[in-house]
Amino acid sequence: MVRRIDPDATDWLAGGNRRELAVDRIYQVAAELIRDRGFDSISVDDVAERAGCSRATLYRYVGGKAAIRDGVMARSAAAVAREVSAAVASLTGKARVVEAILVSVRAIRADAAVSDGLAAARATGMDNYVTSSKLLGDTAIELAGLDAGDETSQWVVRIVLALLAWPLADEGSERRMVESFIS
């Protein structure tokens, strides 16, 4: 009789769900490598070696390099969204919109995975995908506390992307510019 192992079961030895633990470890290592070397300078083999797993295990749990990029970006974007959400929770109106934009820019700049991912999207001509992303637009609307609307959400996303691509001299200059457009 062949005993089947439930991949979603709690592993008594690993101290949790083996799949979730492996995926978390792989994405954590990939984010560290991206931060240290940049996305284009890492390979699936680099991630597998640093995570302490085989290439086959990495592919089984997360997929190839594109899936690693997407997973790391999604996790980083969620962390940025949590940071922005916490920063604007007590704000309303124009102050919330300004802070949502500026905190987003600051958080993205601080996160190598998101910064690298956006730079890669720009370099590979995926600008249109990023600027028209429903997920990004909906997140921007929610964080900025704005009424839903494609034009509004795209405006917020484009302002954040513009500040990332063409930063001003300092955060004070960026704040003044954003405030002048929001008022």
Rank of each mutant, 00 (worst) to 15 (best):
K94Q: 15
V130L: 10
A123L: 08
K94N: 15
A100D: 02
E83V: 07
R122A: 12
R109D: 10
E142W: 10
L136I: 03
A100W: 09
V80Q: 01
V88A: 02
L146G: 02
G137M: 07
I108N: 01
M73I: 07
T124P: 01
A119Q: 13
V80H: 01
A77L: 13
A140N: 03
A87V: 02
G145I: 04
S115V: 00
L143A: 08
I108Y: 09
V98C: 05
V80K: 05
A121P: 00
A89F: 06
G125K: 01
A78N: 10
T131H: 14
A86I: 01
A81I: 07
A120N: 12
A123Q: 12
A119V: 11
A110Y: 02
S132W: 04
S133C: 09
A79Q: 12
S76T: 08
E142T: 14
D138K: 07
S76R: 12
I141C: 02
D116Y: 01
V105A: 14
A107I: 07
T131K: 13
M73A: 11
E83S: 13
A144F: 08
A112Q: 09
A119M: 09
A79E: 03
L146D: 05
L143W: 09
S76C: 10
R122L: 11
S132Y: 05
A113G: 10
D127Y: 08
Y129V: 15
S133P: 00
A81W: 04
M73K: 13
E99W: 02
A123D: 07
A86W: 04
L143H: 08
A121V: 00
N128K: 13
G117H: 07
L146P: 03
L118H: 10
V80C: 00
T131M: 12
A110W: 03
N128V: 14
L143E: 13
G137P: 11
G117R: 06
M126P: 00
A77W: 13
A123K: 15
V105W: 00
A144S: 14
L146E: 12
D116H: 02
A107P: 00
L146Y: 02
S104F: 03
A119W: 03
M73S: 04
R96H: 03
